[in-house]
Nucleic acid binder design. Sequence first.
DNA 1: CGGCATCCTTTCCGATACTG
DNA 2: CAGTATCGGAAAGGATGCCG
Lengths: 112, 112
Amino acid sequence: MADDAVSRKHHTPESAAHDVEAAVRLLDGRWKLLILFHLFDGRVQRYSDLEKLIPAISQKMLAQQLRQLEADGLVARTVYPEVPPKVEYRLTDWGQALCPALDGLLLWLERK
Amino acid sequence: MADDAVSRKHHTPESAAHDVEAAVRLLDGRWKLLILFHLFDGRVQRYSDLEKLIPAISQKMLAQQLRQLEADGLVARTVYPEVPPKVEYRLTDWGQALCPALDGLLLWLERK
DNA sequence: CGGCATCCTTTCCGATACTG
DNA sequence: CAGTATCGGAAAGGATGCCG
């Protein structure tokens, strides 16, 4: 058996393409990568912090992209029941683990 | 100054996001990953082979996605001046080098 | 065989206004 | 402060027909 850390799912061209597409779809959307890279250093950011860090984004898109990242399990959202409201965003462990994978893409791009 | 294989471009959140977006855009398009994974094993495929391998794709999209992959340097196109025409597609070295980077994304996805 | 041109539908996204 | 609601334009993508 020895079916441990080394074992990998078997992929056909179709299944590999399907799975990579699923991964890419998680990153798709005009602003998601920008948001992620502002969280990769482990910082926790408030909604208004992200608005300042990404000046060109509209509130609609910021909220929408954050909702999707949260629904997909990359970002965690914490609401503090205060007045005025305070909401913080940070990466999940899994979201943080995306960083080296994206670095692989950067290395590939630099190789061009 | 020992500025060799270890040296890396310095990235801000903006530049890293911008570069990864550029990489993702090369893969974006409903069918590109499917096409790439049918070429990753080193096989050379004719236009009509790809049509058979990806039955759901329209001719318009197959041609368009192949043009973009070619323009972006991932795929090489060879035309044989015969009647009837014969056109073959294969990965460039750089295109082939994308495979391990995508595998990193697969590993990340499997980790979920 | 290996396309390109055209039309049409769908999805994405920016701008703006409003709210607990 | 942290969103939601609505509108309209732009862009991606599917269906179909024609061509060297």
